[in-house]
């Protein structure tokens, strides 16, 4: 019982520990640009209570949600087709190999020249950041689908497009969702960096504007807020994921009654 309670408390203790080290470090260094943890935490409700800031943060989340959804709609079908067709794979694979290592935020200035500094440019960068891992994992997942499972479906009368949607997609789902989880974190990162380069609105905008103005407690408070958003989104996604692929999890409880 004791050990279980402790393991539940562990993440909280880790966070408190980090804050304590921060607090001590900041007191020792005693420079203006490194506020204490208490000052930063105190600034969090001030930001969240400010109408302007909340609008900015919601703006960021809206862009992220749209770009993430668009990326899934594009990347999952592409990845699945690559996984089932050698031709499609040999066409797109080199393109992926070239674009994968390019930092998507580095494309931001170029994209801004075409699309301006508005929503579209930022969403495109997020879209690119999310697409690649999702394509890659969908590709791997589709490629690993057992041939005989598809044959069994074909014998039941499923056409090729039906097999894609009703066999390849569910069979590859655990792998696709692993890609989506990586994509979600990358979406958050590219969201903030895109707003760093094209400042106009958003969570990144608040962060870097306050950095320019020397409001360091706000800077650190925003880092805490963004970090919390990351944890929250990831936890929500993980909950959804484990529900969707319960059938593939290694050790889920076997019901004891055979009734």
């Amino acid at each position: 019982m004791m050990a279980r309670a402790l393991s539940h408390l562990a993440p909280l203790l880790a966070c408190l520990g980090l804050l304590a080290i921060w607090q001590a470090g900041s007191l020792m260094l005693n420079t203006e640009s490194f506020p204490t943890a208490i000052e930063a935490v105190r600034a969090v409700p001030l930001i969240l209570g400010d109408r302007e800031s909340v609008i900015n943060i919601l703006d960021s989340l809206r862009r992220m949600a749209i770009a993430f959804a668009a990326a899934l709609l594009f990347a999952v079908p592409l990845g699945l087709m690559m996984g089932r067709s050698r031709l499609v794979a040999s066409f797109f694979n080199p393109l992926l190999m070239i674009t994968y290592p390019v930092p998507k935020a580095a494309l931001m200035p170029i994209i801004m020249l075409w699309l301006g500094v508005g929503d579209l440019a930022k969403m495109l960068v997020i879209f690119l950041g999310v697409s690649l891992p999702v394509i890659y994992h969908s590709f791997q997942g589709a490629r690993a689908v057992e041939e005989k499972m598809l044959w069994s479906g074909a014998a039941m009368g499923l056409s090729a497009p039906q097999r894609m949607i009703r066999i390849v997609l569910p069979a590859a789902l655990p792998e696709i969702l692993t890609g989506c989880r990586t994509g979600l974190v990358l979406a958050l990162i590219t969201m903030v960096t895109s707003e760093m380069i094209a400042r106009q609105s958003g969570a990144g905008n608040i962060l870097f504007n306050s950095l320019d103005m020397g409001q360091y407690d706000t800077v650190y408070a925003m880092i805490i807020i963004i970090g919390a958003m990351g944890i929250g989104l990831d936890a929500a996604f993980e909950k959804l994921r484990s529900r969707l692929v319960r059938w593939s999890e290694p050790g889920f409880d076997i019901p004891l009654s055979f009734a």
Partner: peptide, 20 residues
């Protein structure tokens, strides 16, 4: 010319749909 429901396969690998 192709698979059809008049011929039903059973494979050594079972090939069940694991999500069902």
């Amino acid at each position: 010319t192709g698979p059809g429901p008049d011929r039903g396969p059973v494979f050594q690998e079972f090939a069940l749909f694991p999500w069902k």
